[in-house]
Design a protein around this nucleic acid. Structure first.
Lengths: 347, 347
DNA sequence: TCAATACACTGAAACGTTACAGATTGTCAC
DNA sequence: GTGACAATCTGTAACGTTTCAGTGTATTGA
């Protein structure tokens, strides 16, 4: 009959949020038992377990995140680390939704951790790790020798990268096969008679820059076409810069008759540059571009596109991180997404 | 000399994360004193305060979020609630960055709380409130009579809305003046001789639908132009649907000679529809469109654009929520962003 | 000299959870 | 009847923080 002691907060007052104590009081059990019953521990009787879970469901019990986090260190948080200046727009939106889809029926929350141009990309990672703010991290703009991946690997922080590294270390990743993309693009252009091709590359330094460049180069020699160097800009540059450089290039005698572009927004600039030079898409030059949403064909129907699904990337990355947290082998959490066909406009 | 008791974890072991206890041990003070010294409580001596803060800075002390949250209920989290299907892409990206900018040097984290088409928009809000997962909430797709705003207002949860409500209740918001946008668009079109105008509206049911429609209507009578109804689609519809409906409209005898469009992506579809009907932009019809990044002029230089800055919206919304949490009056946290001029392409 | 008072600091308790080390049964073999 | 053992359940402590109710000292006023 020691009830009078603890009743103070459980019995009275309209509707506080229920805790284990509330459940313990309602079921007549101890908090420990309740805690265990809720997580299906083996030393709890079958009927007790059911009873506790029933009551918990009825009154809408939700474990207090701060309590769990303080006691166990588990945050139930996945952090998506993004560059606030250079990230592709549709990428941000789609990857967030992709991640959300996967964590929707888990206890995980998604926090967005931004960093800006001026900062060391390692800064936000250090912050997350030092403050223990997340159980898992997703990073993009991955480099062949990526200090962030190395850092987290050293400290055993679960993470997944969008894009591969090349450090001889195994970690989860999701990547789009940009080698295949660039190669397919070149083959397609060669197939329609283009022989002098230029490549608007991904940002120099990122892993997929190398992949793209290699796919482009290998396919060039395969089909016997030649490259017109276009190294003054990458898709990271401003629309204006890309446009200006493209126009410059297209006014030369040795101008390309085909382009491969690694991003949709950059392609808009390339086309503008082409037209600035008085040339016509589809007649004087063809352009194959990646895109993540179906907009380029509205822009110019002569464009040739290859689709990259960022929402899928988000889902895969989230699945990987959760898998890793769950104890799966990092090597089993790597995925590569193959590009579809180069597709022309179909009215 | 009771040191030996507590030394166990503080003195030994390489580098655990420092806590108040660590600081207390290092300074020779009690945890209470340290806690207070760090938050500039008045009952702490000036020198002690400085000493504690110095040591804290030196060893990189960071308050444990779970500890604070458990004890005080303060989460230091702002939640951005987004619809995973209908939200405009650039909106998601820009608003996140806008919010990030503002909370960058505060202890706040940004969590993204998604909800999908099938769900009641109130669901995620209920979840946040019931689980006490955030100190402040930002919502978009605001309705004149918004159940989410009402719900949070009733419970005293700090929030800000992107877009206004119309319930006679005061709460923080940031809005773009869509009345002014639509009116300006109409005036501009009238100024270049367009007399029969169609409006591609925001989603029906959202507050800014009404604003836009009213601005459009009022300016029409002001300039003596007439409306060609175009109510079968809104910017929420698919690209294909908008395109098809636009083409349909433009093949009629009483087709409009001017369009006002409330979103850039939808404008691409409108233009495609116009061209499907064999008409030419700038000659047969002019289109004024909102955009949030400078892409439409690359698309068709004949387009007339008005810029809406979502990053600014994000910043303003974050500022409002933080202000409200800080105790400012809700009425002082409302802002309206005026549209700039209608701008034509300048090569 | 004494009380009152301001000042600077402190220990214990509490937030909700889980891990640890029992405690209380009942069953069974012998 | 006893000891061993499994099956269930329980209280206490701890995670890191802030709040409450003090505890000592100086300082002041009379």
């Amino acid at each position: 009959m020691d009830r009078d002691q603890t009743d103070k907060d459980d019995e009275a007052s309209a509707h506080e949020r229920p805790t284990l104590k509330t459940l313990a009081f309602m079921t007549g059990l101890g908090v420990t038992t309740v805690s265990r019953a809720l997580k299906d521990a083996p030393e709890i009787g079958a009927e007790t377990r059911r009873r506790v879970q029933l009551v918990a469901r009825q009154i809408g019990y939700r474990p207090n995140r701060a309590g769990v986090r303080l006691r166990t260190g588990k945050t139930n948080v996945i952090s998506l680390v993004l560059n606030t200046e250079r990230e592709i727009m549709s990428f941000v939106s789609d990857i967030i939704y992709g991640v959300s889809e996967v964590i929707a029926d888990t206890p995980y929350h998604l926090i967005v951790t931004p960093y800006s141009r001026s900062q060391d990309p390692l800064d936000p990672i250090r912050y997350l790790v030092e403050t223990g703010s997340a159980d898992g991290v997703i990073i993009s703009r991955t480099q062949p020798n990526d200090p962030r991946a190395r850092y987290m690997l050293e400290r055993g922080i679960p993470f997944a990268t969008h894009g591969r590294t090349d450090m001889g270390l195994i970690h989860p990743y999701h990547d789009f096969d940009n080698y295949a993309f660039a190669a397919e693009a070149v083959r397609h252009l060669a197939g329609i008679g283009r022989r002098r091709l230029a490549l608007l590359t991904p940002p120099v330094g990122l892993t997929y820059h190398g992949h793209t460049v290699n796919g482009f180069a290998d396919a060039l020699s395969e089909v016997g076409a030649s490259e017109v160097p276009f190294n003054t800009v990458s898709i990271d540059h401003s629309i204006e810069q890309i446009r200006m450089r493209t126009a410059q290039l297209m006014r030369r005698d040795d101008r390309p008759d085909g382009f491969v572009s690694s991003a949709a927004a950059a392609t808009l600039a390339v086309v503008a540059g082409i037209e600035d030079a008085g040339l016509k898409l589809g007649r004087d030059v063809d352009v194959v571009s990646k895109q993540s949403s179906d907009l380029l064909h509205l822009f110019r129907r002569e464009l040739l596109v290859v689709n990259e699904n960022f929402r899928l990337a988000g889902s895969e990355l989230a699945r990987s991180v959760l898998g890793l947290i769950g104890g799966a082998a990092p090597g089993s959490l790597q995925s590569l997404s193959l590009p579809g066909e180069v597709v022309a406009y179909q009215g």
